[in-house]
């Protein structure tokens, strides 16, 4: 049962209809995600990544096509989303935020307490649990957001650039924390990013998207051994090649030119 399909997306399209200027955000998206797989969606800004994720999260209706998320264990929620920023609710303490999902689905009190406490400790927010979001840093808020999703114990996690607004160091720390939590829970993850490094570090597989209207143009299997650490992924020469390859693709996608203009690489990366 470990390699069965968890998410199946078929010819999914979304058009934002306006009287004068409709936006074709995504077109004919097809992909599958296996149970327990960590998949990153990588694409240029505005290509419809958020739109796709919001559809899967039940916050938006698709214009065409279909998707299916297989609900295995009926005692668990199907999916939870981790929002890009500002997802923590200002009028709840850190603790109440982390417990939010469990409270909303009326989980038993002791289970709620147990899971909340566990993930508060796990993400290092235990001492800050009584504070309000306005009293903690941006990195801590994002930790609370992650803890809330994991505490809710869904089968699928949908993450929309959760670390994009963080500074480098916080980002690395949180990426490794996410990996370590994910490795012990083995949830199915669909993770949006526009950072190539982040995608290489985290994922089993990367789906590359084209510019608007977004569609999936390529996939890459990242078969680095786990558990992964930033240092080892960074120093792996194979990953350097992958980076260049994806970088070229993104340039092409942005330029809308599949032959590829002369690409200049940031030489400090590798």
């Amino acid at each position: 049962m470990s390699s069965d399909i968890k998410i199946r997306v078929h010819q999914l399209s979304k058009i934002f209809f306006r009287k004068n200027s409709s936006v074709h955000a995504i077109r004919d998206i097809n992909f599958e995600v296996k149970n327990g797989e960590f998949v990153c969606l990588l694409g240029p800004s505005g290509c419809g990544k958020t739109t796709l994720l919001r559809i899967l999260a039940g916050l938006e209706k698709p214009s065409g096509g279909s998707y299916e998320m297989i609900h295995g264990d009926r005692n668990k929620p199907l999916q939870s989303m981790i929002f890009q920023e500002k997802g923590v609710i200002p009028w709840m303490t850190v603790e109440e935020n982390v417990a939010f999902g469990l409270r909303m689905r009326h989980a038993p009190k002791n289970e709620t307490k147990e899971r909340t406490d566990y993930y508060l400790k796990k993400v290092g927010l235990w001492e800050f649990r009584k504070l309000y979001p306005s009293e903690i840093s941006g990195g801590m808020k994002q930790r609370a957001s992650i803890a809330r999703a994991f505490a809710n114990d869904p089968e699928i996690l949908l993450m929309d650039e959760p670390f994009a607004a963080l500074d480098e160091q916080n980002k690395y720390i949180l990426q490794e924390e996410l990996l370590s939590i994910w490795e012990e829970t083995k949830k199915t993850v669909l993770f949006i990013t526009h950072s190539i490094d982040e995608a290489l570090l985290l994922s089993d597989r990367i789906l590359l998207m084209s510019a608007q209207p977004g569609t999936i143009v390529r996939e890459k299997i990242i078969d680095l051994p786990r558990p992964r650490k930033i240092a080892s992924v960074r120093s792996n020469p194979k990953m350097g090649k992958e980076f260049v390859d994806i970088w070229k693709h993104l340039q092409e996608a942005v330029n809308g030119n599949l032959k590829g203009a002369t690409t200049s690489l940031p030489n400090e990366v590798y």
Partner: peptide
């Protein structure tokens, strides 16, 4: 965004 959060985490109208 908080409306989305509530919806995604399955808040009923009373909650």
């Amino acid at each position: 965004i908080f409306v989305d959060v509530a919806k995604n985490y399955g808040a009923k109208s009373k909650d």
